[in-house]
Design a protein around this nucleic acid. Structure first.
Lengths: 204, 204, 204, 204
DNA sequence: AATGAATGAGCATTCATTCAT
DNA sequence: TATGAATGAATGCTCATTCAT
């Protein structure tokens, strides 16, 4: 019994603290920018001591990386799962776009970190590109190629370029949403983007 | 005569120095990132003393802004000029895209600053958005609306959103080009983007 | 019987742990220096938890003091014991020097702590001087005075100063031995030092 | 005229500041110990801003090294110069000892740094030993060998060991003087040390 | 205008020590 | 006794900016 409770409370404590720091970091980064954020701010926001941050993360930079890694992973997993239920490549791309914008639209702070803070350094952008981001682009590309094989997308198009175009358009929607004073549902943009995009790549 | 020459050479000297600092800043920002760049680095690269930088710019941040402002202005002016010679909205958009990618493709350091360094702070992104960037998006939108009125683009499309889509796609081409190890002409991507885009927005 | 064994084993366990920490500290201090050594390093080296160290020592500094105290005590006791069997003051000083160098020569880590780490702070040096070290100098001085009374050492010499000279010479042998890349028996230096010293202080 | 004054005032300003920091460091290190001294303390004591320290020294450690280097150099130069006027090796050693103790005795803070603070790390001791210190021991040794060749010192003695003995004895005098509550002239110990030492190494 | 020495606010990180378990 | 997660005070160093020359 005791061990059961122990297991039930010890682990969560660890996970909770790491989690709390990560959440706090997203809030702090989103409001002050990565470079202007102090580790002490994150600690205060997370309700822990400064030093505690370093029990869970090696450095301030690692916190930023962790924010990216964890969310990118989740996003790709979520995306993949949703695709299983669909067969039409067009529907799949529509779903990818929707999930993309829904995720970012659901957490403004996270969106700011993804759209703005993570872009601020070539170094990070390179790893960023090398890591999960490439995987994401590949997911789009593979889905597009599926549609090409199915004959619904023009076969002469370069799938890699097409994937970037779709990603770029969605990315811009997200960035504009963040910077916009007006409040609207980010996910609502998905349809307009997909309308043009699918029209553009469809076989006549 | 002498005074005339004096006037004729002093001014340029001043302009030269400001120019030199701006150019140096682009190189330095591109290589180290804005936050990791020291004003002293820029000064050394420009061949002036640290203090001299502050005779031309109020702060490090203002240097970044100036890089953006000057180049955005030039870009829009160049774009506008090119459009005068064209009448078809489709051709105009094609030309905008080409100029966009040619400019960035012609100066990798400048491209890095525009695609990466300028994105690293919400504060800047907001001003960025408010300033020349909005003007650029408007140029695209106005051109698109022109096409709608001419009946070559679907009238039901939201021109504002369309403009973002095109910009986002081009922006992603530029960012990918920077991060890519492979060397290719950035401007060569314009056709592929426009092909899909114009197809997507065309009336049937 | 059981309680007897318990007493007989519990105590040693305690002693063992204190002992283990002290030994670990000598190793760690010798390799990293006192200020660069972390309590956590000592704990790991001793095979105990960080907090456990504080069950046996009040602070990191107390560990250093304890290293000194315990070894100085032992050294003086060992020295005194050896002297009982001798009557000639010259032989006694010879024996003191030999024991001095043998002890340090037998444990390089301990020697490093004694010759280097313990010297790094005036504060410690003062207490150091006030404590066991003064006792040690007194042992040398008393032995020398014995020789003066016996007529084998020059009576006009200041015994206190003489004691420092001998100690200084031996101390330098030890320090040099530690820093030397070459490996030689430290104790082998005793004869050369004593030869000169005894010659220097002997009545003609 | 102007340039003369410029030369006469500019250089000194630079030298003055570096010098002031070095002097301040000696005071601060002597009173608090190297590890407990803050760079800010040194700056305040020197009457400059914290950052200014780093215009003249690369790090806190470099300050300590510089204190050692500069003084050791001076000491050896001073010693060498004095020796030129003497021919008897015994007189030369007497002079070396006197200069050694006079220099340290003239500046208690400097003496503390040399006798205590510089000893606190094996790392430093090794460089210390490798650098100027070895040169100093060699000066003593060479002088002793000179005496051996002149027939005034016993030829069978190992000059290297003898040099260490003399240095060790003098070093101990200095250390004891620092730690002693009583105030006496350190240089006055030279005679007693030399009396015994020279007696000990003399040919009969 | 130009210089560059001087400034001093600012901050990530470490680590001795504590204490709930 | 023993643990080790948590604490938070402490500090070397950087660098944007100023200003006397």
């Amino acid at each position: 019994m005791r061990s059961a409770r122990s297991l039930g409370s010890d682990r969560p404590v660890i996970a909770d603290k790491r989690e709390a720091i990560l959440r706090a970091a997203i809030r702090v980064f989103a409001h002050n920018g990565y470079f202007n954020s102090k580790v002490a701010d994150i600690a205060r926001e997370a309700g822990v001591a400064d030093g505690t941050v370093y029990l869970y993360f090696k450095s301030k930079e690692e916190i930023l990386h962790s924010v990216f890694d964890r969310n990118m992973e989740e996003a790709i997993a979520a995306g993949r799962q949703q695709l299983e239920q669909l067969s039409d490549a067009r529907e799949k791309l529509r779903r990818i776009a929707l999930v993309h914008l829904e995720r970012l639209g659901a957490d403004r702070d996270l969106a700011v970190v993804f759209q703005v803070e993570l872009r601020g350094s070539t170094k990070f952008m390179e790893e960023f590109s090398a890591a999960g981001f490439a995987k994401y682009l590949n997911l789009i590309r593979a889905t597009f190629e599926e549609g090409q094989r199915a004959g619904v997308f023009r076969p002469e198009l370069n799938a890699k370029v097409v994937a970037k175009i779709l990603f770029g358009a969605l990315d811009e929607m997200a960035t504009n949403w963040i910077l916009s004073k007006r409040r609207y549902k980010l996910a609502s943009m998905a349809d307009q983007v997909l309308d043009i995009f699918l029209n553009g790549v469809a076989t006549k």
